[in-house]
Simulated assay, not measured.
Amino acid sequence: MTQPPGNHAVLLDVSVDALSDVLDLIHLRGGELTMARPGEGSEVRHRAGGRVLHIVQRGPVDLRVTGGEGTVLEQGDLVLLATGAEHRLRPEGDGAWMSGTFLVEEQEAVPLLAVLPPALVIRGSEAGREWLPLCAQTLAAEIAVPTAGSKVMVSRVLDLLFILALRTWSASAGPREAGWLTAALDQQLGPAMRAIHRHPERPWSVEELAGLASLSRAAFCARFVRLVGEPPARHLSRLRLARAADRLATTSDAVGAIGRTVGYASEAAFSRAFSRAYGSAPRAWRIARAGGSSAAP
């Protein structure tokens, strides 16, 4: 495409965006948006398992995660509860907030999001949070006067808030638990993680991945184990099987063909690896999944 004189196209460097690939893997999508105005002395409880965020419109609001300490949220604050922690919110005075839900592929999301704190609080009053009031205003407008496209608009804004919250968490100081998400957000491991997640079928060598991370073989392996929690080969195997499970659940492709697409040379090798991880052979797992039950690796 020809650019007008004086204009320059700026392309995103997708080679380092492992986070997008990881979020694609868990099929993240924003769900429903609701408004809560319970009144002073009342509270709203959220059972374990739901992945939600809350944005305070009028504060203060007391947040308490079951088994954890309480946190006071003020007007404009956001809290993301991406791990599905049970919690309750109680307003002081006429506090009010919006709550948004998220849908994910649980099997892949559980290990990915487990590195996050039960409640990730982002203060709207802090510098660099200009995106938060803009998103909050958009959501408030859509919930107040729903119109054509509101459902899709809300879903997209919730997705955006989820990603921005992850970026904020990644940029904050402090130690990180080992996990996929920690590594995907790491500047050095990010390119290698993207390569693995984009092409798990390739016979990646440690040397190749270390080159993508601009690290020596030894430094790469040490950093990978520290941030991911397992060696590169084990992570690649886990990813291949997760991709295979997703295709078994969502397509009618032959088992052998699915195995080949994720890097297994034979159906027998794929079946053995899948059975060790998921507790049953691919065909049996697919039948059980279709019947409403599945085994997690």
Rank of each mutant, 00 (worst) to 15 (best):
Q137H: 05
G84K: 06
A144H: 04
R90K: 15
E126W: 03
I143E: 06
D62I: 08
V65D: 09
V121H: 04
F102P: 08
V79Y: 03
G124H: 08
G128M: 05
L80W: 05
E106M: 08
A85T: 04
L113A: 08
L116R: 01
A119M: 05
L120I: 03
M98A: 14
G93V: 01
G70S: 14
G76L: 12
Q107E: 15
V72M: 12
L132E: 04
L139D: 04
D94R: 13
V115K: 01
R64Q: 15
A141S: 15
C135A: 15
W97Q: 07
R64D: 08
W97R: 01
A114N: 10
V121R: 01
G84F: 02
G70N: 10
A141L: 13
A109Y: 02
R129L: 09
A144F: 12
A119R: 00
G93F: 04
D77R: 05
T83D: 02
A114D: 14
Q107W: 08
G149H: 04
A96C: 15
R90C: 12
T71N: 13
L89T: 07
P118H: 10
P91V: 02
I122A: 06
S150T: 11
L78D: 04
V110A: 07
D94N: 15
A114Y: 00
E126T: 12
K151N: 07
E130D: 14
S99K: 10
P111C: 09
E130G: 12
P60L: 11
L78H: 06
A85H: 02
S125I: 14
I122C: 11
H87M: 13
D62Q: 12
P118A: 14
G100D: 10
G67I: 13
P117C: 09
L103R: 15
L132A: 06
H87A: 11
G68V: 05
R123K: 14
A140D: 13
K151M: 11
D62E: 13
L116E: 03
G93K: 02
L120T: 04
P111R: 03
G93N: 10
A109E: 05
G70P: 14
A141P: 01
P117W: 05
M98R: 05
L78K: 06
E92H: 15
G93L: 03
G70T: 06
L139H: 01
S99A: 14
L81K: 01
G149Q: 09
E126V: 14
Q107N: 11
